[in-house]
Amino acid sequence: MNLIFLISLTSLFVILVWYIVSPILEGTTNIPEQINQDELMRKKTVLMRQIKELEMDHHIGNISNEDFIDNRNGLKNEISKLLENIN
């Protein structure tokens, strides 16, 4: 019983070490491009949502015309910059 337990424990330890160390032996050294692209797409979605909220605030009367145009242009510029980097 003790021997089986010890073997199980050792196996668990070896599996753990392999799980952690294996990417160092076989992985890629650079951050994959797709991951960066996903992040940019997420940022774009958030900015689009902010424009929608801004439009609603403007319609309800919670924000002046001048501020609305200012903020919307700012958000649109941010999206444009993002789009330049999205493939």
């Binding site: 952690i20 990417p23 160092i24 992985g27 050294t29 650079n30």
Partner: peptide, 9 residues
């Protein structure tokens, strides 16, 4: 990046 993945694991 390999060390990021290892740290993550």
């Amino acid at each position: 990046y390999r060390f990021f993945i290892a740290g993550w694991r």
